[in-house]
Design a protein around this nucleic acid. Structure first.
Lengths: 207, 207
DNA sequence: CTCAATATCCCATAATCGTGGTATGGCTTA
DNA sequence: TAAGCCATACCACGATTATGGGATATTGAG
């Protein structure tokens, strides 16, 4: 039995979702509030999953996340919203939300999402996922000419990931001796003498 | 009719997916190759969607993405892989992949994903989505105070500068043994096991 | 005052790394 | 065709790192 809670200011939507959840066999809506403040004050037990609207009177869902997480550290939060503004999505995810659904999502899919998040997944509509990914792609612009060969760059990636030579060898499916050779060449090209320097250069965008 | 292509080195999996795709009414598998190199050399027409394995002989799927995107700028790429290593996922998404599926995904879901990506969404299994989101959540919380003591932060700075224990000891005018102790404590606090990981965390603002 | 955190120092050992070699085969290009 | 880069692989050795012990002194918070 998944214990769900809900914060949504529009009574119609709130009651609709609440009723729907309570009709399900494997979940129950513990509590439904119209604001973060009221929720924090009045909730009695500990929910597993919270459906949280972004636009709320008083404290917004976004700024409420840290408070909610503080009171219930293991709470999984799914944002529900009409906005699909990438910045808000990004913000919510950074604050600690784990899922993100649009308000027009059918009830049945909301149910699936609650089950999904409870299983350790992250429900996200594909449209949202695409926006999230675009954010990723924008923060790392294509870098200019690097003196390193493609394989060498893969080795560097391994170093940045904190892998040992052995682990890099496994990942790239080559022997550790080949990894050593590549690394020697990388050091030569970059004029460095340690993993540490390569990682620093790489993360500072100097490669 | 969605034009799909496939790069996967295991013949069994490749042919399985190829056959399945060709049985669908609304899609066709234009071409299936066992390596990025062969794909780029032999493909004749322009696919809409590419299913791309990460682990490949020769050029890895990861490093192949830029080449594939260069030849087919509007190509949508879905990574298919047995690995769910967050670093690789992150890398693939940054390189320009738009979807990410685990190899055990049922054929029917692969089909749905292809349709989804073609509609402008981003197919991702919820497990993957969770990992992606964790990446988001780890980039930000630089705001909270670090668990490291002032001295420990100085040690970290030394590591980032590529110094050996000896050099850090000289710089801070303490013995190398003290440096060792500090580093042991740092590893403990950050739950890591190498200089490399400390440097990466530090430069990513996670400390 | 006591405790926890910090900072200092020492020892020992196994694993990993850095660096010097050598060598083969494929590919590109002058 | 020869020169060069790239990727692959192996050997050897000293340096460095990772991790397990202990030990002592200071300091600020409860």
């Amino acid at each position: 039995m998944i214990k769900v809670a809900l914060i949504e200011d529009t009574a119609e939507i709130r009651e609709g979702i609440e009723n729907f959840l309570n009709q399900q066999k494997d979940m129950a809506c513990l509590f439904a509030a119209d604001s973060v403040e009221r929720f924090l004050k009045e909730i009695k037990s500990t929910p597993d999953v919270l459906l949280l609207d972004i636009t709320l009177p008083g404290m917004s869902g976004l700024s409420g996340i840290p408070h909610l997480k503080e009171k219930f550290p293991r709470l999984e939060i799914i944002m529900i919203t009409i906005h699909d503004d990438p910045n808000r999505i990004f913000e919510a995810l950074c604050q600690g939300a784990t899922g993100y659904l649009l308000k027009n999502t059918p009830f049945l899919d909301i149910k699936k999402s609650i089950e999904e998040i409870h299983r350790g997944g992250s429900p996200m509509s594909p449209q949202i996922a695409r926006k999230v990914i675009h954010h990723f792609q924008n923060i790392r612009p294509a870098k200019s000419e690097s003196p390193l060969s493609p394989k060498e760059k893969e080795i560097v990636t391994g170093l940045v990931d904190g892998l040992s030579y052995k682990m890099i060898a496994d990942r790239l499916e080559i022997t550790i001796e080949t990894v050593r050779t590549h690394i020697k060449n990388i050091y030569q090209k970059l004029q460095v003498h340690s993993k540490a320097e390569v990682i620093t250069k790489s993360l500072r965008g100097e490669i």
